[in-house]
């Protein structure tokens, strides 16, 4: 098992290298002048020329790439062309809010999606099943930004019970300080015992959290349903029933454990999808996460930031796939 994990991690490093190469090349062939971005709109030609030398942009691309890799190996992702801040510290600030959303949506996918799929399979072709399938197909086919906008329209504009965006109300953000432990404001405020911050953060989390969670919930419910329906036709399920085991046990234990492999894979894939989905959702809800960060980085052609975020998403994908493979490997039939 450890050998299997190490082998997969090695593969992950290779994937990461490939991604860095591709992103680096694409970022550099796009017509833009990083040096001009670095010095700002009102710089003199001399300043731009100096920045070009300072940033090493006068050297051939392969030398630049080699230098970038050497710095990367030491954990240095370079500086943002727009803010002149280290990319690493900007990522450190923007990743936790995104992870908060992603964690929430993943929990929802597992806690709501799997049971929804199981119940749907159990009540196949009955009203509950039809409703659950309608929900699954609906949320998977509706664009995330549309769901977000409609939710804002209803809960902010019409009902005015939830905030439109942001992670905290301005007043609370300015007056209250919560020590950072996990980076998740909801968790940190609970740890600090500050309920006022907690409830404010929770209120802000509802709409973006819901927007981002419906897709994985629907997808996982649908996949669990179809995996389970197939398994319910297996001989060992009929056999389990013939032993007089209660139906709930047959479904929730004997059948569900067999569908764990496909379900885990879908959950892992949907986390990856959710990461991409944060780009839109965070923009709509002004959520200070990595999605919002990459959108402004792309618009500003801030290539060190773009590569930094790309490395982060690649690492996430590699880890997620590894996690899914490990869960699949808990099936006793799989030899790794």
């Amino acid at each position: 098992m450890i050998k299997f994990i190490l082998r997969r991690l090695m593969l992950g490093v290779i994937v990461l290298f490939g991604v860095v190469v591709i992103t680096f090349v694409i970022a550099r062939v796009v017509p833009s002048d990083p040096a001009a971005k670095w010095v700002g709109p009102r710089a003199t030609p001399e300043q731009i020329a100096k920045a070009t030398v300072d940033l090493g942009l006068d050297q051939p691309v392969y030398v630049q790439f080699w230098k970038y890799l050497a710095a990367l190996a030491q954990g240095d992702l370079g500086y943002s062309l727009r803010t002149h801040q280290p990319i690493l510290s900007e990522l450190e600030a923007t990743i936790p809010p995104t992870l908060e959303l992603v964690t929430l949506s993943t929990l929802a996918a597992v806690i709501a999606g799997i049971p929804l799929g199981v119940v749907s399979a159990q009540k196949k072709d009955q009203t509950l099943d039809h409703l659950s399938r309608l929900f699954s197909i609906g949320v998977v086919s509706l664009p995330t930004f549309w769901i977000g906008l409609v939710l804002q329209l209803i809960f902010f504009r019409l009902l005015d019970i939830l905030p439109m965006g942001g992670q905290l109300s301005m007043g609370i953000q300015l007056t209250m300080d919560v020590p950072t432990v996990t980076g998740f404001i909801t968790v940190d405020s609970l740890l600090a015992g500050n309920l006022e911050v907690f409830f404010d953060a929770l209120k802000h989390l509802v709409l973006p959290g819901f927007t981002i969670a419906v897709y994985p919930v629907g997808l996982v419910a649908r996949m669990t349903r179809s995996a389970l329906l197939e398994i319910m036709n297996e001989d060992y399920i009929t056999a389990a029933r013939s032993y007089g085991l209660p139906e709930t046990r047959v479904v929730w234990s004997y059948a569900l454990k067999n569908s764990l492999g496909p379900t885990a894979t879908v959950v892992a894939l949907s986390i990856g999808f959710t990461l991409v989905n944060t780009f839109l959702t965070e923009s709509i809800f002004a959520w200070p996460g990595i999605g919002n960060y990459i959108v402004s980085a792309v618009v500003g052609l801030d290539y060190p930031a773009i590569i930094g975020v790309t490395i982060f998403s690649t690492i996430s994908y590699v880890i997620l796939n590894l996690a899914a493979d490990i869960i699949v490997a808990t099936d006793p039939r799989v030899r790794v």
């Binding site: 056999a239 013939s242 032993y243 067999n258």
Partner: peptide, 21 residues
């Protein structure tokens, strides 16, 4: 009844046992 007073053995021993228990 099932399993207690009436028991059944199925055709295919390869698929009658649950593979993950």
């Amino acid at each position: 009844y099932r399993g207690r007073r009436i028991a059944m053995i199925f055709q295919d021993p390869m698929s009658t046992l649950n593979p993950v228990f």
